[in-house]
Every structure is written in structure tokens, then in C-alpha cells.
């Protein structure tokens, strides 16, 4: 963890923003707070942040637009969105627009800090150049996946599963490693969802694109010597 990580908080509710700032400062983060989308947009152009905490309902432009703007500039700064509990559709579209994670209001500060750390950890050492294997190309900056030159539509989770596998091409990843990389949770939920994403990815990219390592996990490409 970086003790000097600088976070941009975009939230229009003063009371909540104040509480989050106080809480995160206690944990040695530096927090810049902006209350509207337009000034956040400027701040994101001018400064470089370790992560962005983004509320979706903002005055002067909405958070989703801001997120799309950030990603359209091939800016891979991790973005964690803050959403209301009843807006599941908002959360899904946030993920699909390239958010790294979300946290549901009302949240607890320690959970927020944990999610933030997880997002930062996942992003460290991530290589930005284009990844290729056979006829499949993944461009993390553009969040674009093509197969034989044709764009392939992937859900946010399918994309992250693929990206994780491609980044460690030639190495087998266990299911829990993948789960951790894809959701960054604490692993309390035991699920078969990684298997579902692998199944979907194989359907879209070719049955033999991802190899199963029996009793362990999955791998893209041949095993390294």
C-alpha cells in the first residue's frame, strides 16, 4: 500500500464527503474533494490521481459521463463508483463503462478503505501495452478486445477475467486468484462464477483459447518452461 496515495473524491453531498475525507485522512490517504462533474473533469486533466471515488448522481453533468470521458482519454486511473442501493442498473452500466469497482451507499469506512486498497493493488504493475495471443488482441487502455480484427463484446467481469489471464500468459491461475483479481473481494462468497466467465469467453474467443489446468485453474497459452 502506498501511504501517500492521492485520491480524488467526487461527491456532491457535503456531509458524506466530509465524513469520507476525514475517515480516509486518518488512514494516511490524501484526499482532494470536488462536488461537481465539470470541475472534476478539469482536475482529472490537470492532475494525476492514484484513484477516483466517483458518485454517479452529480450536479453539472453526471458521473457516468465523467467516467466515460476518463476512459476515452485512455486514462487507466482506477475508478471506484459510489452508488445508491436501488440503482443496480447504474452500477452495471458503471462497470461496463470501465469502473474498477463500486461501493454501495451507505457504506462503512473500513469497507471503503479495503475496496480502495484492493483496487490500487490490482492496478499496480498492470502493463498498459496491447496484449496478444493468437488472433485475440486486448487493449487495456482502450478496454477493447478483438478477435481476428473484429471487436468482441464482453461484460465487465468477462473482460477482467480475460485481462487477468492474458497478463499472466503462460502461467496457470487458480480460481481463487482469478476471483480475487476480478472482484477483489475477501473471498467469503464461494462461487462458480469464474467457470461461467471462462465458459462465456471460450464461446466468444474459441473453445481452446483458454486451457483448463485440472484441479487448479486456467491458463492462456502454453505453459512456460
Amino acid at each position: 500500500m502506498e501511504p501517500t496515495a492521492r485520491i480524488l473524491l467526487v461527491e456532491d453531498d457535503v456531509m458524506l464527503a466530509d465524513a469520507v475525507r476525514t475517515g480516509l485522512k486518518e488512514q494516511a490517504w490524501r484526499v482532494d474533494w470536488l462536488a461537481d462533474a465539470a470541475s472534476a473533469r478539469l482536475a482529472l486533466i490537470d492532475h494525476s490521481y492514484s484513484a477516483v471515488l466517483l458518485d454517479l448522481g452529480l450536479p453539472r453533468g453526471n458521473g457516468l459521463e465523467l467516467l466515460k470521458f476518463v476512459r476515452s482519454r485512455y486514462d487507466t486511473t482506477p475508478v471506484l463508483i459510489l452508488t445508491a442501493r436501488d440503482k443496480l442498473s447504474e452500477r452495471i452500466s458503471g462497470l461496463d463503462a470501465g469502473a474498477d469497482d463500486y461501493i454501495v451507499k451507505p457504506f462503512q469506512l473500513d469497507e471503503l478503505a479495503a475496496r480502495l486498497r484492493a483496487v490500487l493493488r490490482r492496478c499496480q504493475g498492470r502493463v498498459s501495452p496491447v496484449l496478444r495471443h493468437r488472433d485475440v488482441m486486448v487493449d487495456p487502455a482502450k478496454r477493447l478486445v478483438t478477435r481476428a480484427g473484429e471487436a468482441v463484446a464482453l461484460s465487465a467481469h468477462e473482460y477482467r477475467t480475460l485481462l487477468t489471464l492474458m497478463e499472466s500468459r503462460g502461467r496457470a491461475l487458480s480460481r481463487s486468484q482469478l476471483e480475487d483479481a476480478v472482484y477483489g473481494g475477501d473471498g467469503t462468497i464461494e462461487s462458480n462464477t469464474i467457470a461461467v466467465y471462462i465458459h462465456q469467453l471460450r464461446r466468444k474467443l474459441g473453445e481452446d483459447f483458454i486451457n483448463t489446468v485440472h484441479g487448479y485453474g486456467y491458463r492462456v497459452g502454453e505453459a512456460l518452461e
Binding site: 475477501d186 462468497i189 464461494e190 462464477t193
Partner: peptide, 18 residues
């Protein structure tokens, strides 16, 4: 995933088969 924290506090096992 919203229930992860709550379930882990109660030491529950949450399994998801989809």
C-alpha cells in the same frame, strides 16, 4: 457481493452456483 461483509461478520458461508 454486497453481502460479503455482512456474511463474513456472521461467519456464514455464502455459495453461488450460476
Amino acid at each position: 457481493r454486497d453481502f460479503e461483509v455482512m456474511a463474513s461478520k456472521k461467519h456464514q458461508s455464502l455459495s453461488l452456483q450460476v
